[in-house]
């Protein structure tokens, strides 16, 4: 219902930020995420960052899934 893609913030100027995904660049608004900093990854929807992505949560999810599927395999 709402397509949003993870992009990396390359530079910030006031409420506008330069972002990148796979080398594709565009100027977007960070009005909805004033806490966003250069180097952060944000969820981009229709030209606006709607959330700052949580890198620890992402890593934790992947570790949790890896452990869970390994546990599954060892039949416990």
């Amino acid at each position: 219902m709402c397509l949003a893609v993870p992009v990396k913030i390359i530079s910030i100027e006031g409420e506008q930020a330069e972002v990148d995904i796979g080398g594709v660049g565009r100027k977007v608004s960070i009005t909805l995420t004033p806490e966003a900093r250069v180097g952060d990854y944000v969820l981009l929807h229709t030209g606006y960052a709607i959330n700052v992505l949580n890198e620890e949560e992402a890593q934790e999810t992947l570790n949790l899934l890896e452990r869970m599927v390994e546990a599954g395999e060892s039949g416990d």
Binding site: A4, T31, L32, N51, L53, N54, E55, E57, E60, T61
Partner: peptide, 18 residues
């Protein structure tokens, strides 16, 4: 929440306020 990297229980207060 499975999508913990993108979603917090309280959402985005700044966006809601706007």
């Amino acid at each position: 929440i499975a999508y913990t990297r993108g979603v917090k229980p309280e959402g985005n207060p700044r966006a809601l306020e706007l």
